[in-house]
Nucleic acid binder design. Sequence first.
DNA 1: CGGGCTATTGAAGTTGATCAATAACGGTGG
DNA 2: CCACCGTTATTGATCAACTTCAATAGCCCG
Lengths: 256, 256
Amino acid sequence: MQSPYHHPPYHRLTEFVPLSAEEMSVASRWLTDRRRLWRGKAIRHEGEAVNGVFFLLEGWVGSSLLLRDGRRQIAKVHLPGDMLGFPSLALSHAGETLEALTDVTVCSLPNAAIGRIFEELPRLALGLFLSTQRERVALMQKLSWVGATSAIERLSAFLLDLHHRLEAAGLTESGSFDLPITQQQLGELLGLSTVHINRTFKSLDETGFIARCRGRLKIDDFEGLRRLAATSPPEFAGTAAWTRLRGSETFRKGTQ
Amino acid sequence: MQSPYHHPPYHRLTEFVPLSAEEMSVASRWLTDRRRLWRGKAIRHEGEAVNGVFFLLEGWVGSSLLLRDGRRQIAKVHLPGDMLGFPSLALSHAGETLEALTDVTVCSLPNAAIGRIFEELPRLALGLFLSTQRERVALMQKLSWVGATSAIERLSAFLLDLHHRLEAAGLTESGSFDLPITQQQLGELLGLSTVHINRTFKSLDETGFIARCRGRLKIDDFEGLRRLAATSPPEFAGTAAWTRLRGSETFRKGTQ
DNA sequence: CGGGCTATTGAAGTTGATCAATAACGGTGG
DNA sequence: CCACCGTTATTGATCAACTTCAATAGCCCG
């Protein structure tokens, strides 16, 4: 897990496609334009012109949508290694605010580079494509939590998912991890009020499923949480996706 | 709107990229393998192996996720011209059930063809990519409805969105359109109970915002509905996205 | 004319929101 | 090191939206 091959920006790509040296070298160029931002700052506001996408190197970022009356929905918490801002590529003005939930380091990739990747590095393009499809799956799952489950089920599912993703990034220690977001933000993430998040947390705490201390959370009973959580994480295709996509199908350029 | 250029499967691609004759001819090949399905039948069940994606030619399709206890969330209603099943490309087993909400005609495109498109028809690939990013935006918006708005706001937003999309497909008549889905399905779509959907409908009806008759719905007061719906539809980039993506950025193959 | 599904309505029950107050925490400057 | 401040967490009490249960009515179809 600690080879550079598994760090951003390769991270999200090599899960689906093997990269050549050339491709990796292009990808590593993406890291040159870095930016540091403090907690609470926006990488990009909803409604601003779309100039590029971002890679998150350190810290947590929330992507959120604003409603007219000020309510807010956080669509996703992005963790180190994630790619940010792709949905807005289809829009003239960004459809989501990208806000630093902790101090963060991001690097950005201009729109034009995406176009070039599609033209010249198809495998990289496919990696990006599949990676964003996977995000779409995650988003559908979250919708199903918010639309069809109770507060305790939602929170359980979220904590399990979060742990799972943090673990993949090497940011957990035997079931415990930093949770540097406020209960307010957790509420906006799960579609619940601050107060109810607090009570739900308390209930998980008292049942012994989790333990909280400072900004740190430890999952004590994974099985218990999983029983609550109503969905299991989907099984990603891994590089099998790539294999599947390059099956034996006949398809010849120019004659189709 | 009635030129073949605006029919599936071009429909969802030409919104973002101009297609060459060659590209259109490849795309038109996708139509060869058609399938008709009756209302209620599944095009593909959640958990099945992922063999391809689909284009919806006629009818409505719902993509839904199942929770352990039998509750169901419909992530999206797909209309004629839409592309189905892309999220599951990242999975080894489908993450969503694709169910015919009416009698439908679909055609399918095997996984392998997607891989070839990325290798050989980059502009087509980019069109697919952007189109799925736009779906992701729509999904985020829906999440914000379900997570942060009341029943009447949700239903209003949904009806407006639906009308908007049906209009683009030429399936409306001065504000009225067929609504061939049950209130049960509408509930699963918006995260509300059947009973509450019914009451919310009734309230919109009595206020004079809409009128219902058989399976048909007419929007009588767009402004009123828009005031209720807490979000406005995002502005898509259109082919500007493509232009933006091919900007003046320096990026030379092989030297990066 | 039935039979099955869908829509509608009423009544009662729950979950979660809102309002409001207090406590704990984290960082600051003295 | 301590007093202070703003932010966040916690708790109680009340309220509202939505769900559930249950029954009836309407529609579509053979």
